[in-house]
Amino acid sequence: MATVEFDVWDWGHCLDRVVDGTPVQLVRPSDTERPTWVAYENTGYLGTVHAQGDTCGTWHVQTVHEDHVRLEDAVRALRRPPTWPQDRHRARHWARACLNDPRLLIIDIQTTGVHNAWALQIGLTDRHGTALVDELVHPHAEVEAAAVALHGISAARTTTSPAFSMLLPELTGFMAGRRCLSYNAAFDRGVLERELWRHYKKDHRQVQAWLQKCTWEDAMRPYAAWKGLWSTRHRTYRYQPLGGVYEAVANCRRLLSTMQHISH
Rank of each mutant, 00 (worst) to 15 (best):
G173H: 09
G173E: 07
G173P: 07
F174L: 15
M175R: 02
M175Q: 03
M175C: 09
A176H: 07
A176P: 07
R178D: 01
R178G: 06
R178N: 03
R178L: 02
R178Q: 13
R179N: 12
R179M: 13
R179L: 14
C180N: 06
C180G: 00
L181H: 03
L181F: 11
L181A: 12
S182P: 08
S182T: 15
S182W: 11
S182Y: 11
S182I: 08
Y183S: 02
N184F: 08
A185P: 01
A185E: 03
A185L: 04
A185H: 04
A186V: 13
A186D: 05
A186F: 03
F187E: 06
F187T: 09
F187G: 12
D188P: 12
D188S: 10
D188E: 13
D188G: 10
R189Q: 12
R189P: 01
R189N: 04
R189T: 07
G190V: 12
V191Q: 08
V191K: 11
V191Y: 07
V191L: 14
V191I: 15
V191H: 10
L192D: 03
L192T: 01
E193N: 05
E193R: 14
R194F: 05
R194H: 10
R194Q: 11
R194V: 00
E195P: 00
E195D: 00
L196S: 03
L196F: 02
L196C: 07
W197F: 09
W197H: 11
W197G: 02
W197K: 06
W197Q: 11
R198T: 05
R198I: 05
R198Q: 08
R198E: 03
H199Y: 12
H199G: 06
H199W: 07
Y200K: 01
Y200R: 03
Y200V: 03
K201I: 00
K201N: 01
K202S: 14
K202L: 14
K202W: 13
K202E: 13
D203Q: 15
D203S: 15
D203I: 13
H204R: 09
H204F: 00
H204N: 00
R205Y: 08
R205Q: 14
R205C: 05
R205E: 12
V207F: 05
V207L: 10
V207I: 10
W210K: 04
L211D: 01
Q212R: 14
Q212C: 11
Q212F: 08
Q212M: 11
K213R: 12
K213E: 04
K213H: 00
K213M: 04
T215V: 15
T215I: 12
W216E: 06
W216C: 10
E217W: 12
E217Q: 07
E217K: 00
